[in-house]
């Protein structure tokens, strides 16, 4: 019973992390139709900048968080302007931007290597200490992520469903011409979506920096996890992404318990390919 509860709690932590990792990727995909391979690298940059400001600069964690998110937001807008915008309307735009964002990933990772070096770094935790939930022990930082993730996602949902600008993001994602004819500035919306997606990546990176070592390749695994979640959910809505994050987080926690640490990623990838082949629009997607 206690193992089950502990597994459930660790599944919840994973689900929260995965939902955060995937939300920005999903937002950019649904609005612009670009699969951003630099998403993980943006998380890494967010973590490094936060570390520099809070640890090297000595300004503390919150200014670090703000600096990290601000940097990735600006980088996101720059990536959109230089690497995405020139290819709008091309026949193979989706595939070309896969390659340009892959190049962006390399540029960001190697730059980080040059700037910060390969030595491991870590951010202090937002909250110190551990929390015990009837036997299952997680760090307070992880507990904070579990609480924070739904709040951030709800805020994002409120933004895209209740505010005019947020709604315009969805409108552009569904029908660019019709959106333009309502007076929505489509290029500006693209930049906004990319900036917002990159901001979410930066925020996720800062949160990750408190539980993992920050290295130039910090973003590789989260990028793949975000991809899995977005694909499982179907390249569609935010709700589907959150649902998929829950399914995968829980599945991973319980698979580790039953199959062991080594077979779990293998099983998840096989499941992913099965989903892609049998239901190309995802578990929660609509054809």
């Amino acid at each position: 019973m206690e193992t089950l509860l502990a597994t459930f709690v660790s599944g919840l932590v994973l689900a929260a992390l995965y939902a955060l990792m995937a939300s920005g990727l999903s937002l950019i995909w649904t609005t612009i139709g670009v699969f951003n391979f630099a998403h993980g690298a943006l998380m890494m940059v967010g973590a490094f900048v936060a570390w520099t400001v809070s640890e090297v600069g000595g300004f503390g964690l919150w200014p670090g968080l703000i600096a990290g998110v601000a940097t990735t937001t600006v980088l996101g807008v720059i990536i959109e302007y230089l690497l995405i915008r020139p290819f709008y309307g091309q026949r193979n735009m989706v595939l070309i931007t896969v390659m340009t964002t892959l190049a962006a990933m390399i540029i960001l990772e190697k730059s980080a290597q040059i700037i910060w070096g390969a030595r491991l770094k870590q951010l202090p935790r937002m909250i110190e200490g551990d929390i015990s939930i009837s036997g299952a022990v997680i760090s307070a930082h992880e507990a904070l992520i579990v609480v924070l993730a739904p709040l951030i996602l709800i805020a994002l949902w409120q933004f895209t469903n209740r505010t005019p600008v947020g709604r315009s993001l969805r409108a552009v994602g569904q029908n660019q011409e019709a959106a333009a004819l309502l007076g929505i500035n489509v290029p500006l919306t693209f930049a906004l979506a990319f900036g917002l997606g990159a901001a979410l990546a930066g925020l996720t990176g800062v949160l990750l920096g408190g539980i993992r070592f920050i290295t130039p390749s910090l973003g590789s695994e989260p990028l793949i996890k975000a991809m899995i979640v977005v694909i499982f959910g179907g390249l569609g809505s935010l709700g589907a992404t959150v649902g998929a994050a829950l399914v995968i987080g829980m599945a991973e926690a319980f698979l580790v318990l039953t199959l062991g640490l080594y077979w779990t990623p293998f099983a998840i990838f096989l499941g992913l390919i099965a989903v892609l082949v049998l239901r190309p629009n995802g578990l929660f997607g609509r054809s």
Binding site: R170, N175, A178, A179, L181, I184, N185, V186
Partner: peptide, 24 residues
């Protein structure tokens, strides 16, 4: 001029067979 500028100035165009925004 861009479509958004033109709409802002008050000229509004509805397209033929416009499917609008399916999920809204």
């Amino acid at each position: 001029a861009s479509p958004s500028k033109i709409v802002t100035s008050g000229l509004v165009h509805t397209q033929q067979g416009n499917t609008l925004f399916g999920d809204m």
